[in-house]
């Protein structure tokens, strides 16, 4: 029974998250305390959820893409574009109190992110360019597009309706948490209540066999890139609404890397196949908690990068079959190095 628990995909991520939280608790005993002020809850835990919301969203989209054996490097750029277009539409609006204005702005950026996702998906499926390269194009150009939209400035808006998306609260909790929860539920429903999840895992695990089983893998792959674009777009809205401004240059910077990290920590393999949405959420929370922790103990926040580097490496080494094999078969490798190498390549 204990073995089963340890082998559960959430065991290690949750352990790490638990350890991080415990460390915080020991370091500052009021870490877990929640204060109700003006009908809103405040506290470090709420902050982690609130600030982590965009990352969680992006990671959810990324999970599905990685599950098909792909990758999306352009999410950071889409985050920036989406925030930029929304803020631009609002700043151009005449009637700032109109709810329609915000809805139009949100609609425009959601639509644009769907189109950008479709672009990525089309490059991968139609022209069959490797995902990492196909999405690199939008990663490079997307930053430029975001800056083009904002004319290289930081667009600041003061629209309470828009602000609500990223900074408002509902039932004493930040509204962004509800958006994330909503998207998580949507992703779960889409993948587990329809056959999409089965198809994604099948294509990611063995694309060739999936084709022979009659799957239309192109449609599946196209769908996940579109969904990933949508997630990044909404994350962009939350991020820009939270600070009431859009910064084409820095919004969503490093998001693609953090999202990939969250997915990998959550137990989804970069080679595709089985995916774990909840694992990804825990992974994203670990990254956010780590950042918060490092802020709190007063170390320069950029040091997080060093920690992340070792986490990436550790997780990948554990996932690497070669690494595990080398541990076991060191002696054999010494005697017949070619046997392992050639069979592994074959």
């Amino acid at each position: 029974m204990g073995g089963k628990l340890v082998r559960h995909h959430l065991f290690w991520p949750l352990c790490v998250l638990g350890a991080l939280l415990l460390f915080n608790l020991l370091y500052s005993p009021d870490f877990f305390s929640l204060v109700l002020r003006d009908g809103n809850l405040y506290g470090s835990l709420i902050d982690i959820l609130n600030f982590g919301a965009p990352l969680i969203l992006v990671s959810i989209g990324m999970t599905l893409v990685i599950a098909t054996g792909g990758i999306d490097l352009s999410v950071g750029s889409i985050v920036a574009i989406s925030g930029a277009i929304a803020c631009l539409s609002i700043s151009k609006g005449t009637d700032q109190s109109s709810i329609m204005l915000v809805l139009t702005a949100v609609g425009a950026s959601v639509l644009l992110s769907l189109v950008l996702g479709l672009w990525n998906g089309a490059l991968v499926t139609v022209t069959r360019i490797q995902p990492i390269i196909a999405t690199l194009i939008l990663m490079v150009a997307g930053r430029g597009i975001a800056q083009l939209i904002t004319s290289g400035q930081i667009i600041t808006v003061s629209n309470p309706n828009y602000e609500y998306i990223g900074a408002g609260s509902l039932a004493a909790l930040p509204f962004s948490i509800f958006i994330v929860a909503g998207m998580l539920v949507l992703a779960s429903l889409l993948t587990r209540r329809t056959a999409l999840g089965l198809f994604i895992e099948s294509v990611g695990s063995n694309a060739n066999a999936s084709r022979l089983a009659g799957l239309r893998s192109r449609t599946v792959i196209l769908a996940v890139y579109v969904f990933c674009g949508l997630c990044a777009g909404i994350a962009g809205l939350i991020l820009s609404a939270n600070v009431s401004s859009a910064d084409g240059n820095n919004a969503g910077l490093w998001y693609e890397l953090d999202a990939i990290l969250a997915v990998v920590i959550g137990g989804t393999s970069l080679n595709g196949g089985r995916f774990y949405l909840i694992g990804t959420v825990v992974g994203a929370l670990i990254i956010q908690t780590l950042t918060t922790t490092i802020y709190m103990i007063g170390v320069p926040p950029e040091i997080t990068l060093v920690v992340k580097a070792f986490v990436v490496l550790a997780v990948c080494l554990i996932q690497s079959e070669a690494f595990r094999k080398t541990l076991k078969l060191r002696w054999k490798k010494r005697h017949y190095p070619a046997e392992q190498e050639v069979t592994r390549h074959a």
């Binding site: 056959a195 089965l198 895992e201 063995n206 066999a209 999936s210 799957l215």
Partner: peptide, 29 residues
């Protein structure tokens, strides 16, 4: 190995895969 089984999936999922493919996304068994 290469044209039949989907490694990461369970026996159940492997069995229903082709049938489910003919039903499409939105009519999951």
């Amino acid at each position: 190995k290469t044209e039949g089984i989907i490694d990461d999936l369970t026996v159940r999922e492997n069995i229903i895969l082709a049938f489910q493919a003919t039903r499409g996304w939105f009519r999951p068994l």
